[in-house]
Amino acid sequence: MLKPLKRLYSACLCSLVALGLLTVSSTLWAETILITGEIEDGNAQSVEMPRLPGSYSRTIEWMAPEGEEVQPGDEIVRLDPGDLESQLEQAEVNIESQITAAESQEAAHELTIFDAITRLISSESSLENTRLDAMVPEDTVPELTHDRNRLALANAIHDLEIAIRNLEEAYAARDRDRPMAERDLLNAQNEKTRIENALKHTNFLAEQSGIIIYAENRLTGLKIFPGESYGSGTTLLIVASREDLQFRFWVHEADIRKISIGDEVIVSPDAAGDAKVKTKVTWMSNQAASRSDWSSAGYYEIVTEPLDPIPEVYIPGMSILGVIKNEEVSNQVD
């Protein structure tokens, strides 16, 4: 009698254990991922370091204070012009030199043409005189005189041909050199215009109203500040408004595989943690970047867009916290 009871007890215990395992295997489990980021304007004005003549990098001389509100036309960035001002002075000197050289060359050509015309007139006059002498009948003058007149006529014709050729060459030389001088002058003027445009690009004005937010150095993750030097293409700052807010986060490389496009992220600003907004992931970077002020690990960027109305306390540049509930279901359950 005791053995059947033991067998029944064992069977019940196994059933309970199996039921418990089934319950555990079919339970949804969730992992919470915390990410940090900041609020940004999707249509913000971005100021990048321009490519200017001379050195590859330029120094930021002045930037509008971060967090300051600006209006269209306000100065927001001023770069150190470096040697651009001296380049402009040299360009102006080159233009004056080209003008002087062109005028001197033109005057020389005109003098050569004048001399050629004078010789042509003289040759034509000589030809007329010698032609009259050569027209004297042979039987009315000594034979020697007649031969000398014929030789003088031949020489006068030859001199006229040379005079005509010299005048043609003088005109051709002037017409050949004039476009070259004009081209050299145009090149010098274009160089001056290029330097002037470069100087204009050392000052940046706000194109829209908004708040100044300093950009980050993508190599270090640190904020960019006046006095530092950067290469062309580096974003220096943005002018952001609340017109088209979105949220940019930095995700540790260990967590990026747990996040997908379309995942829901609950956003709350550090300054007002109770003002939460539901958002979804719309973009993820393909490559990690270092942030030396955080850790030696790599961090990926993701962008989320709001699904709910954004409270007024949300301001571009504000630090935020994102919460992602990463849920999975065991494949042991049908």
Rank of each mutant, 00 (worst) to 15 (best):
K6H: 12
L8S: 03
S15E: 09
A18N: 01
G20Y: 08
L22G: 13
S25N: 14
L28M: 09
I33K: 05
I35P: 01
N43E: 14
A44I: 02
S55H: 08
S55A: 11
T59L: 06
V70K: 00
I76T: 00
D83E: 14
A91K: 02
E92T: 08
N94V: 05
I95S: 03
A101V: 11
A101D: 10
A102F: 01
H109P: 12
L111G: 11
T118N: 08
L120T: 04
S122W: 05
E124I: 03
S125E: 15
S125K: 15
E128D: 14
E128L: 11
M135E: 11
P137C: 00
T140W: 01
E143T: 08
H146Q: 09
R148N: 10
A154M: 14
A154L: 14
H158C: 15
L160R: 15
L167R: 06
E169Y: 14
E169I: 15
A172Y: 11
D175A: 15
R178S: 12
P179Y: 05
D184E: 07
T193A: 13
T202W: 00
N203H: 13
F204R: 02
A206P: 00
S209K: 01
G210M: 00
G210L: 00
E216I: 06
E216M: 07
P226M: 03
Y230I: 11
G231N: 07
T234Y: 07
T234G: 07
T234V: 11
T235Y: 13
I238L: 07
V239Y: 03
D244A: 13
Q246M: 08
Q246N: 11
F249Q: 02
V251N: 04
A254E: 10
D255Q: 09
R257C: 10
I259Y: 05
I261V: 09
G262P: 06
S268L: 06
P269D: 04
K278Y: 07
W283Q: 11
M284G: 10
Q287A: 13
R291F: 09
S295R: 03
Y300P: 06
E301S: 15
T304K: 04
E305H: 08
P306H: 01
L307E: 10
P311Y: 11
E312K: 14
V313M: 12
G317P: 02
G317K: 00
M318C: 02
I324N: 01
N331T: 15
V333N: 14
